[in-house]
Nucleic acid binder design. Structure first.
Lengths: 326, 326
DNA sequence: TCAAAAGTGTTATCCTTACACCCATGT
DNA sequence: ACATGGGTGTAAGGATAACACTTTTGA
């Protein structure tokens, strides 16, 4: 219970830097688009000698490497798994990675990115089953669920499964009458990982329940466990949206209510009811009209709004509590 | 953006191991009761060579050192701050600590603890202002708020304060008409730390706005940043209670509804409305009657209940959504 | 018979959801 | 004039919050 000797380990900070542009949420990935290498999240070492806290360290290397201006930053989770970063026979250096979510505005930094070997990639490339804006994604019924149901059945006679694969499937993917919960992004990814159905799992030496050749690629894979970190980031952002005014970190200073709604929809991956959304924003007094209108949308000109920073000081939890289906 | 060399750091796992007994939530602390040393949370090194994941590592040293059986385990936050663990002039080894919340039943392990140099300590000793079960704690109006208001005023003319000290005070401590939010345990502790009003802050070299001699001890201090980790644990547990059936990890297999209510009240630190609490538990179908009754309470015998494990598989988010004042 | 705790029934209110119609502009 | 998106009012239903009284035991 005391000051035992501790094993030295390397600590890296891995960031999911998110922006929304043209109704597409995107995440900054390192590496050339054309290279055959897997996409990976940007990461940097944490050096306690130069930086007092993780967050300062993170901001520092993000700034240095990408010239990006990030606003909101939040710690997600710390991953220490072996076997997620490396093959079973690997005995190399051990690494702990602290995952972070950071929000930015793409327009701010279009130029900055050209220098760095980094680009914004729509996040639904990595999680196609998470985008329900145009209805239920086809990949669910065509590939994912049939395979997962097979996996659930194949574990049927193993008595050592605690909660039951079928039940987990119901909750995470909303089968059997359960509702789809857009916040369970991480749970869904982890289930796919456990079932050996994402490339990362097979790379880590996990065997799927069905023949590998029968498994189509389920979203683009990423390096190391970066897709897991991204899943954590999306889940956290989707949840946070509902009780903190974080969307505005992703919006330009002035915007129409429809633009705001589209951004929220882009993040949460589902449709929102227009009237209810507007009332929500209005009664929460999250925004105020600038007096200007925008004619850029083609139709009746839309009133422009800006975020009311004061709400942060007025109400305890100002967010967009998008209800059942808002 | 790539495989830069990483600085080696030591990684420790620090656990807030919580149990509730006799309507008092308590946390396991290391060190002798009589010793003059500050209480500290148990912690152990993370050795990636022996343990594949943090959680496995944590369970392993907790088991080895305390013979305690912990059920639920959850990662809280990873702290990398220098200056929170050490004095400004310290240049020793750098440590990152991953904080964990673990739940256990005290009765399970009364004996186990005698061997280990550890004991359960009521958590409200460290946070007396968090216990509202007998009404608003006197320490708030007698000590904390007058001092904090002075601190807020003293920063008035400093234009470089982003959200305004007065506003933060309102939200965290519910002054000026704002409601008290029992989940903001960490925010309150951090505010006290920033104001230099807890011993840990002064130990770290932070100067309070008022004369040190005028500040009474505000709760018992802990070693390092362990009180901050405990605040994180309490906050997380209070929040989780509302959407996951975690209370039952702290209850004996059979219990009366009043015992369940008292446990929830002990954790959330406030009173609950009896009828509404009962209806909540009932309509959520979280428990089922065993058929037995307990006459131990002195009065009409109470029916005994047990947790219905099945709910975990039936409903997506089974918790005790204790509303405004339930 | 009295104290002490268990247990129940009902109503007012608010918040959430759903629905359908009118308005201002560019082409 | 018409297509396109912007903008509003209202009613039904469910969940929440507040209320006070009866029941069963031990002393």
């Amino acid at each position: 219970m005391a000051d035992t000797h501790l094993t030295p380990i390397e600590v890296g900070l891995t960031a999911a830097i998110v922006a929304v542009e043209a109704e597409e949420p995107a995440v900054l990935v390192a590496g050339d688009a054309r290279a055959e290498t897997r996409a990976g999240l940007p990461f940097g070492p944490f050096d306690p000698l130069s930086h007092r806290t993780f967050e300062i360290g993170l901001r520092s290397w993000v700034q240095a490497q990408t010239a990006l201006h990030v606003g909101y930053v939040e710690q997600l989770y710390t991953f220490g798994d072996r076997g997620r970063h490396a093959r079973p026979d690997d005995t190399g250096a051990h690494m702990v990675s602290v995952g972070y979510l950071a929000l930015t505005r793409m327009a701010d930094n279009a130029a900055a990115l050209r220098a760095a070997a980094a680009r914004f990639e729509p996040w639904y490339r990595f999680f196609p089953w998470e985008d329900w804006r145009d209805g239920r994604p086809a990949i669910l019924d065509e590939s994912i669920l049939p395979l997962l149901e097979q996996w659930a059945r194949s574990g049927k006679d193993d008595p050592a499964r605690p909660p039951g694969r079928g039940e987990r499937l119901r909750h995470t993917f909303g089968t059997g009458g359960s509702p789809w919960d857009e916040e369970k992004v991480l749970d869904r990814y982890e289930l796919l990982y456990e079932a050996g159905m994402v490339e990362e799992a097979r790379r880590d030496g996990r065997n799927p329940a069905v023949a590998k050749s029968k498994i189509p690629p389920l979203g683009e894979p990423m390096r190391f466990d970066h897709r897991r970190i991204l899943a954590t980031a999306i889940a956290r952002l989707r949840a946070k949206l509902k009780y903190r005014p974080v969307v505005f970190e992703l919006m330009p200073p002035e915007f129409t209510l429809t633009e705001l709604q589209r951004t929220v929809e882009a993040i949460s991956g589902r449709h929102l009811h227009k009237q209810n959304f507007r009332r929500l924003v209005e009664t929460a007094a999250l925004v105020e009209p600038t007096g200007e209108t925008s004619t850029a949308t083609g139709g009746r000109p839309a009133a422009l709004f800006r975020f009311r920073r004061e709400v942060m000081q007025e109400r305890p939890a100002p967010g967009l509590r998008l209800g059942g289906r808002a």
